[in-house]
Simulated scan of single mutants.
Amino acid sequence: MSVVNSITARDAKSHHEHDHAVIVDARPQVVRHQGSLPGAVVVDPTDVRKRFTPTPSGTFPVVRDPDTEIAVVSVRSQAPAIAEEIADLGYTNVHYVDGGYGALRTAYRA
């Protein structure tokens, strides 16, 4: 198992806005009614492994470069585990957003 760290909502937003990071919204569909995040890749938590597993040819399907920074937003208790799951599939720069959706949404409003 790899080790992922948190990233602040402010840093995740800044990295995303400067095309240095991809935001992955892995909140369950039942809580996505709270709103969306601009430009985020939406993946149901139950589909993470299927959506992020490299193809048989070795390419990475959701985020093309395995070294791209990925910032995961989910239910707070699930975010670290989902980030770990993505990292375990070969992505090398995965974080979870500290404070989750609420913190990131606030950062986008600031």
Rank of each mutant, 00 (worst) to 15 (best):
A12I: 11
T55L: 11
D44I: 00
E69S: 08
R64F: 05
T8Q: 12
V24K: 09
T53L: 03
S57C: 02
S14M: 12
Y91G: 00
Y96D: 12
N5S: 15
A110L: 12
A71G: 10
P56F: 00
Q29H: 05
T46G: 10
G102E: 14
V3C: 01
S77R: 13
I7M: 15
H33D: 15
F52L: 05
E69H: 03
T53F: 00
P66G: 02
F52M: 04
Y101W: 15
G58L: 08
A79Y: 03
L89F: 03
T92A: 10
E85T: 11
S2Y: 02
P66M: 06
P28K: 01
D19A: 15
E84Y: 00
T92Q: 13
I7S: 14
T55A: 08
P45V: 04
A83M: 07
S77L: 10
T92G: 15
R64E: 10
Y101M: 10
E17I: 01
R76L: 12
D47N: 13
F52C: 05
Y96S: 06
A81P: 00
Q78S: 07
I70M: 06
Y101T: 09
R10W: 00
S74T: 04
Q34W: 06
V48R: 01
V4E: 04
D88Y: 00
P56D: 02
L37A: 09
A40W: 06
G99R: 02
A26G: 10
T8F: 07
K13C: 10
P38L: 13
V4L: 06
T68R: 15
V3D: 06
P66K: 11
V4S: 04
V94F: 12
V42D: 11
K13Y: 09
V73M: 11
L89I: 05
T106H: 14
E85V: 02
H95K: 13
V41A: 12
G99L: 03
A79H: 05
I7H: 07
A79C: 07
E17D: 13
V73G: 09
T55M: 04
Y96V: 07
I82K: 02
M1N: 03
A107Q: 13
S36R: 15
A71T: 09
V24R: 08
P61T: 00
D98L: 14
D67H: 15
S14D: 12
V72S: 03
G90R: 03
P45C: 08
R49H: 12
V43G: 04
F60M: 03
M1E: 04
V43S: 06
A12E: 13
R105P: 01
S2M: 01
V43M: 07
